[in-house]
């Protein structure tokens, strides 16, 4: 059993660009769910639309920067389209509409009907070359300390990804600590009361849905650029639920919660993953007991148990305020 390499694998995955992308997407979801109380169960669709908006624009001959703008605007537009008919209705309408829309969009993108544009199940590849042209680090050179080593290519995406995480966190902080953010929290607590105080609740909810959606779009673009690849089946509903886990784990309605949640989740996930792979290969009786595939299943069980333990001892999440959670809604 090689404990050091388990830890190194865990840490490398945790600080990597994928964690940054999940953190960004969770920042968007936290604005919607943690602050405005919106139940958006189709968050992954905003990532898909962002990613495909970029990929298709470049595929059609546009420059990458234009693709990024198109992707972000398309995600905001999705928020508008989903919000307009539902945000005046009871909260569950948004939940149902978003969960359905997310699957419809994914199936549409992978359908043969959309193939000319989306290339169906095969997706679109190699649209982010101009992003990597900007990489100041020689892509195959190795950087790092001790055994924590990454390639220059990965370092570049990490740098951009975590810079985005920081900028978006600052943006959300400014929004939330303003009177605008206070209205959002009031809506989360009680819509009718907020209406009775003269606030245009519908407009605020729409803004939160669109801004949170655009941020998810940015996350989708980052992931797509990192992988130089978009395929429809990367955008399954389970991504949305992982993002809810991240937001709640870190502390819904806190500014750094989504970032901490993403880091904790990814660390748990990848460390346990590395642990299972290592145990399966190196410990005789584990190897006898489990196939590599079964080890993967057990990993998920262990991650689930880890989340449960955390929620039992910190129901407010890592950063949440316990006092807030204990307030009963009288």
């Amino acid at each position: 059993m090689d404990w050091a390499s388990v830890l190194v694998d865990g840490i490398l995955a945790t600080i990597g660009p994928i964690t940054a992308a999940y953190a960004i997407s969770a920042i968007g979801l936290n604005l919607q769910f943690g602050y405005a109380g919106l139940l958006n169960f189709g968050h992954v669709a905003f990532m898909l639309v962002g990613a495909y908006g970029t990929a298709i624009t470049v595929d059609l001959g546009g420059p990458l920067w234009l693709g990024i703008i198109v992707g972000i605007l398309a995600a905001a537009l999705l928020g508008l389209l989903l919000g307009l008919p539902t945000l005046r209705l009871r909260a569950d309408y948004l939940a149902i509409t978003t969960i359905a829309a997310a699957e419809v969009i994914r199936l549409l993108v992978r359908s043969s009907w959309a193939q000319p544009l989306t290339n169906g199940v095969f997706g679109i590849q190699g649209f982010a070359d101009s992003f990597f042209d900007l990489n100041p680090f020689p892509p195959s050179q190795l950087y790092g300390i001790g055994s924590l080593i990454v390639t220059g290519r990965k370092l570049w995406v990490m740098l951009v990804g975590w810079t985005l995480v920081m900028l978006l966190t600052l943006l959300i902080r400014r929004l939330i600590k303003s009177p605008w953010g206070r209205v959002l929290k009031a809506i989360r607590e009680d819509e009718d009361a907020t209406i009775s105080l003269g606030k245009n609740v519908f407009a605020y909810k729409l803004q939160a849905l669109m801004i949170g959606g655009s941020i998810a779009g940015i996350a989708g673009i980052l992931l797509a650029v990192e992988q130089q690849n978009v395929t429809p089946d990367a955008y399954l509903p389970k991504i949305t639920f992982i993002l809810y886990v991240i937001v709640i784990l870190g502390g819904a309605g806190t500014i750094l919660g989504p970032v901490v949640g993403a880091v904790v989740f990814q660390f748990l996930f990848f460390t346990i993953d590395a642990l299972m792979v290592n145990a399966q290969a190196n410990i005789g009786w584990v190897g006898d007991l489990l196939t590599p595939a079964a080890a993967g299943q057990i990993k998920l069980v262990l991650v689930g148990v880890g989340m449960m333990v955390l929620m039992i001892f910190r129901p407010q999440g890592v950063l949440g305020n316990r006092e807030e959670v204990l307030i009963d809604e009288r």
Binding site: K185, D190, A193, E324, I327, R330
Partner: peptide, 8 residues
């Protein structure tokens, strides 16, 4: 039924 904004 009173509607205070509890977590504000």
């Amino acid at each position: 039924l009173t509607r205070s904004l509890a977590r504000l």
